[in-house]
Amino acid sequence: MAQLIKNGQLIQDSAWQLVEDSAEATSGSLISLGRWQSEREALLPAAQAGDIGLYLESDQTADLIGDDASSFPIIAINFPKFADGRGYSAARLLRERHGYKGELRAVGDVLIDQLFFMKRCGFDSYALRDDQELEVALAAFSTFTACYQNDVADPRPLFRRRA
């Protein structure tokens, strides 16, 4: 199982697993967007109860789930390859546009050197690829002490903070 960093700490967790569309969605299941779209009414109570989460593929943009995002306790965004940067936009839009406040987890090809960017885009948990060194990963969150742009962590760009 992948190593997990959540809110800046290593945790042992986690129950959350992607399930096949044909399998039963039980507590701890992450379901696909397609399944949510076709079984929304049936799944809504479980989502709102915090029992099932959503799994977005990298080609699924944030607006496809839109404000429904807030129905879930957790949304996982997949990075099929670390160089696929679509998930950064998805994360940011879920947070900034769709008001999503739950857990936002990066899964897939999640490497140390992406963590700082991911955090800025609104992720708060990271299922690191197995071979990544955890000590180094934890340190990566403090690589930079300031950033030029506005982001999810700080909505003010540097030019609004500069004295």
Binding site: G85, Y88, R92, Q114, F117, C147, Y148, D151
Partner: peptide
């Protein structure tokens, strides 16, 4: 400055 370490656009197509 805006483009330097832009968090969302470090892995463009």
């Amino acid at each position: 400055q805006w483009s330097t370490f832009h968090p969302e656009f470090a892995f463009l197509p």
